[in-house]
């Protein structure tokens, strides 16, 4: 589903983060003014209240993988305008320039505390991390590589949903990625899905909720439909905390909520159980 938020990218993008003059950032949760450099050192988590700011894919990968172990795959895959959607490629290009990324997901091989994994990390700054052909293909290839190399796969999701500029092709990425996960699972391999703010629409309704283990960052928004759509459909007040990680954990979707500072060690621990033989550290 193409549940985009109109304002989402600008809300969370560089503009806000860099004001004023890139030195200070105001925490939207506790209103504390934070030194940009200190925030970056703290993995973009507010030192005062623990609010998790949006983290870029490169920042996340650097924090997760053993130093120098990450080897990016399929970096050259690029979008085409298969439907002839007006202005689509200009938009993609603008986001490529803005983020320095080729697309809304970065995939590759890496080690987490010495354990080799295939890793895919979505970046919400890139067109709301919507899933089109390139996102679907890169994630599918990462899963297929993991199956072939008998490795676990970890996907960090964040997404506004399927990318409507690629129409039905975007919808079919849900089927493609889920199919690759079916084969990976059949091969007896483990998949950890990590939900970050916000994970919605077609991504939630495919690989993001298919993890053998599903982790989430604190307070991140997780949903199928966006809250506005739910409200308009049901004409009802939404329950408190609706569609937050905590709400979803209470309703049995999420295994564990993990602080960003603990993500690497938690993943390492879990991966240790996802092979036939657990090697004592």
């Amino acid at each position: 589903m193409g549940f985009f938020k109109k304002r989402s990218v600008d809300d969370l993008g560089e503009k806000k983060r860099d004001m004023p003059e890139g030195l200070w950032t105001k925490c939207p949760s506790c209103a504390e003014s934070l030194y940009e450099s200190a925030l970056a050192r703290n993995q973009r988590v507010c030192a005062n209240c623990g609010h998790h700011f949006t983290q870029s894919a490169p920042e996340r990968i650097a924090a997760l993988c053993d130093e120098g172990s990450f080897e990016e795959l399929d970096a050259k895959l690029d979008s085409v305008n298969a439907l002839g959607f007006k202005g689509y490629l200009d938009k993609v290009k603008a986001y490529q320039e803005k983020t320095g990324l080729g697309e809304a997901v970065v995939t590759g091989r890496g080690n987490i505390e010495g354990q080799p994994v295939l890793l895919a990390v979505m970046d919400f700054r890139f067109l709301g991390a919507s899933m089109g052909s390139v996102v679907g293909e890169k994630i599918t290839r990462a899963i297929e590589t993991a199956t072939k190399e008998r490795k676990p796969v970890i996907v960090f999701s964040a997404s506004g949903g399927a990318r409507m500029h690629e129409g039905i092709l975007s919808l079919m990425q849900m089927a493609k990625t889920s199919g690759a996960l079916a084969r990976h699972s059949e091969a007896g391999l483990g998949y950890i899905s990590v939900l970050t703010h916000p994970t919605t629409g077609g991504v939630t309704a495919s690989y993001a909720t298919l993890g053998d283990v599903i982790l989430a960052e604190p307070k991140c928004m997780i949903g199928f439909a966006g809250p506005r759509v739910v409200k308009e459909t049901t004409h009802a007040d939404l329950p408190p905390g609706f569609q937050t990680a905590e709400f979803m954990m209470e309703h049995g979707l999420v295994d564990l909520i993990v602080q960003r500072k603990d993500m690497r060690s938690t993943l390492a621990k879990l991966i240790g159980y996802m092979s036939k033989t657990k090697v004592a550290a």
Binding site: M174, G179, S206, V230
Partner: peptide, 26 residues
């Protein structure tokens, strides 16, 4: 479309769909 309601979200409509996508492949 699948129903975008409160109960549907609480009972994990997204997972229900995703699960079918994976399992129908098999």
């Amino acid at each position: 479309g699948a129903f975008p309601g409160i109960g549907a979200e609480e009972r994990n409509i997204a997972e229900a769909i995703a699960y079918n996508l994976r399992e129908m492949m098999l």
